[in-house]
């Protein structure tokens, strides 16, 4: 009885301010405050990305373009891993096939980048999907294994058969007219891809894909071919990667086996895990954090891969929810101490 007065107990209370806004989109139109509340993070992201070129030096503008490519790959990885249940360890394969296709079209047929990029994006995605198709019928780790093997094997094949320019690659490709085109092409791509994917995962197809991840048998018993939906999902992810690859080949005017390099497979994964799996925004932000970091480590050779992996393991073991989930929670809920 006397304890009541002796100590004042405190407990942490958590309020969720956005719950109404987030559950029913329609209510957001009822008040300016709620609309503002919803719009701020989105506008911040979009304008942040679009305005960033003005504040960067030439060198970092290039890095920004790189980061955009990684962001696309990370988006694709997150989409496949979290919404379809396919772990893709071979983002480099998407980059490589997009890059080589647009490189070949440009070098052999002399087409301009604004033709080669769309064609290489679609054709590259078709090829990547076809190659991965045989393992889509299987559950479990097959997709991870196969997607890990193919970029590396493709490199061996290119070197061994000395096709597509062998180890030299294809040089002297057309580049974009100026660095502004470079930047806004990829930034636009990232923003469109991000919001399109966010839309997609809430549409019926997204729902079906998530059901496949959760309970594929019930989906089969509902008369839906899970292979065809998985194929569609892989195609979508491949589109993003191949666009990145095709863009990359014209960014540097050069295509080579280093476009199958491990960086394109591992950095997007690290970015996704760091940014928060399943958020789609997180991976983009992760990519824009990790790429400059890896640029800074460029002088240390393979150091950057080791660093990505350490970050990756650190997050996956100790903070598996990632940055974005934490940030979202902090934004939507505020905690305060209440005296009891």
């Amino acid at each position: 009885m006397s304890r009541e007065t002796s100590t004042i107990q405190r407990r942490k209370e958590r309020l969720d301010r956005g719950i109404k806004v987030r559950t029913e989109g329609l209510y957001a139109l009822t008040s300016w405050r709620e609309m503002f509340y919803l719009l701020v993070p989105r506008t911040l992201l979009i304008f942040g990305l679009l305005l960033s070129p003005f504040f960067l030096e030439m060198y970092w503008q290039r890095v920004l373009c790189q980061a955009g490519i990684y962001a696309l790959l990370a988006l694709g990885f997150d989409f496949l891993a979290e919404y379809v249940g396919l772990v893709c360890l071979g983002g480099a394969f998407f980059i490589g096939s997009g890059a080589y296709l647009s490189g070949l079209l440009n070098a052999k047929l002399g087409w301009a980048p604004f033709f080669t990029i769309p064609i290489a994006t679609v054709a590259g995605a078709v090829i990547s999907t076809l190659v991965l198709l045989p393992c889509l019928r299987l559950r479990g780790i097959y997709f991870a294994i196969i997607s890990f093997m193919f970029p590396l094997l493709t490199v061996y094949i290119i070197i061994a058969l000395n096709i597509f320019g062998g180890t030299e690659g294809i040089t002297a490709l057309a580049t974009f007219p100026n660095i502004w085109v470079d930047q806004y092409l990829i930034l636009g791509g990232v923003i469109i891809a991000l919001f399109a994917l966010r839309r997609l995962v809430t549409e019926d197809i997204g729902l079906i894909l998530r059901s496949i991840k959760d309970n594929d048998q019930a989906v089969k018993a509902s008369g839906i071919s899970i292979t065809s939906y998985k194929t569609k999902a892989v195609f979508i992810a491949a589109l993003l990667g191949c666009f990145g690859g095709a863009y990359l080949s014209h960014l540097y005017g050069w295509v080579g086996i280093s476009q199958f390099a491990l960086d394109y497979s591992i950095l997007p994964i690290a970015a996704t895990v760091m940014g928060g799996m399943g958020t789609l925004v997180g991976p983009v932000i992760g990519a824009f954090i990790l790429t400059p970091l890896s640029e800074a480590l460029r002088g240390f050779g393979q150091m950057r891969v080791v660093v990505y992996c350490l970050i990756l393991i650190g997050f996956i073991v100790y903070k598996p929810e990632g940055l974005m989930n934490v940030l979202q929670r902090k934004y939507h809920q505020f905690e305060h101490w209440e005296e009891v």
Binding site: E82, V87, L262, I269, F300, G301, Q302, M303, C309, I313
Partner: peptide
Amino acid sequence: PTSEIIASFAVGLIILEGLRLQGI
């Protein structure tokens, strides 16, 4: 499973690429 695959992949890369580190 997703995390298991990613983590073991990352461990392997740390070892492999770590072997090629220079100057530390």
